[in-house]
Amino acid sequence: MDKKFILPFALTIVAAALVGCSSNKEKVDTKPLPLPKLVQSKQLVPVFSQSVAATNKDDDLRLQIAVDQGVLFIADPKGVVEAYKGKQRLWSTKMSNKDGLSAGVEAADGIAVVGNQKGLLTALDQATGQVKWTAQLSGSIIARSHIQIGHVITVTNDGNVYAHDEATGQQLWTYRLPNVPFSLRGQAAPVQLDPNNVLIATANAYVYGIDVVSGVPRLQRRVAVAEGRSDVQRLNDINPPVMMGQFMVTTSYQGQVTVTDLAQQQVVWSDDASSHQRPEVTQSKVFITTVDGKVIAYDLMSGQKLWENDKLLRRNLSNPVLLGSDLVVGDFDGVLSLIDPNTGDLIGRSSTKGQVSSLRVIDNQLYVSTQKGALSVWQNR
């Protein structure tokens, strides 16, 4: 079995290692900036919260919240999956295996899918929590699956892509990605390209498009370039892409933010920016958070930098998301910062517990997961 070595999530340690490789002995400031005082501060309204077991602090791969048909699905790294309708718990299922969970939840079409580090993929009935089927894959599952047109698409950490029938769990096809020996995060989660194809980003600076039904590759694009002498300096993980019409927006670690026109098969623009988070994209703007804690907005079509916020440096920012008229980012201390998407100004904040690992907006509500196991839902006032 091929293995990918995943470096710890402590990016400040990685940065320090890179500096140590240089002959320049200049000190690098790794202390997070204190939060600036706000004259007027908006706050988010908490809607729901639930605590589960914390994830390993050295593991940047987090179990995420899923929502389908108004039902909230959450997973515990110790192996518990629960469903909530509002604040009412509908069911709680403990996985029978002893290996806990490392990926999920993905929920659609009546099932909720989770995976573990031993490669066991499990589909649960959304209504009852009962196990519908399991499948043993070839490597660790550390990225959530994707459900599309009756297929469950899963990427294992040894570089294999699997498709299973969502009703029966039967394996329909497999596709082999190029194996990369080092990765910051491991394989990224698959995302939809169009009704018939999925996009899979890899740690070799490429994005692949694969036909969901047949497993035939339809697209292969290099979207980033990293330079350096060592394997660590050449790390170039691509985060899950975002589609906006015919434009694919990608960010990468030690690489670039890039907009690619898939209809014309050409790069529209690219700008050097190291990020380990998925971008937020609207019809006119691209928002990213960088490894060093900047929040940057670009014009989608021209690549012009609209603004740059450096008030949250070294605070280990989460992915940015738009909640109504506000841009939201989380940090290592559980702070949710609200930013004016037009100016980049900080306009408010709220707090949860633990390092914010992922943000999602569904039906104008903000879903937050943290490393300490705090799962919460928020909305604007």
Score class of each variant (00 low, 15 high):
266 Q>S: 09
222 R>V: 11
206 Y>N: 13
215 G>H: 10
292 D>W: 12
247 F>Q: 15
284 S>E: 15
279 P>R: 04
217 P>C: 00
289 T>F: 10
280 E>V: 05
304 Q>W: 06
211 D>P: 02
225 V>I: 12
281 V>K: 08
245 G>H: 06
263 A>C: 04
199 L>Q: 00
273 A>C: 05
270 S>W: 01
204 N>P: 06
280 E>R: 10
266 Q>Y: 06
251 T>W: 05
302 S>V: 08
275 S>P: 04
237 D>G: 00
288 I>H: 09
250 T>R: 01
234 R>A: 04
246 Q>F: 13
248 M>W: 06
279 P>H: 06
198 V>D: 09
207 V>T: 11
209 G>E: 03
202 T>H: 15
276 H>Q: 12
202 T>N: 14
302 S>G: 12
288 I>P: 05
228 G>K: 08
238 I>K: 02
264 Q>A: 14
277 Q>G: 01
303 G>S: 10
242 V>T: 08
202 T>R: 11
280 E>C: 10
258 T>K: 09
209 G>H: 07
275 S>A: 08
214 S>D: 04
197 N>E: 14
282 T>G: 02
196 N>F: 13
286 V>D: 03
270 S>L: 00
210 I>A: 10
260 T>N: 07
238 I>C: 03
233 Q>V: 04
228 G>W: 09
196 N>L: 11
217 P>V: 03
244 M>H: 11
261 D>P: 09
197 N>R: 13
252 S>T: 02
218 R>K: 13
296 I>K: 11
207 V>C: 11
259 V>E: 07
263 A>G: 13
265 Q>R: 15
305 K>N: 12
243 M>F: 03
261 D>V: 06
236 N>H: 08
257 V>W: 01
269 W>V: 02
204 N>Y: 02
252 S>Q: 06
220 Q>D: 07
267 V>K: 14
273 A>Y: 02
250 T>I: 02
249 V>K: 07
232 V>S: 04
227 E>A: 11
214 S>I: 02
213 V>H: 11
233 Q>W: 06
284 S>W: 13
273 A>H: 10
274 S>I: 08
224 A>D: 05
207 V>E: 06
273 A>T: 00
290 T>F: 05
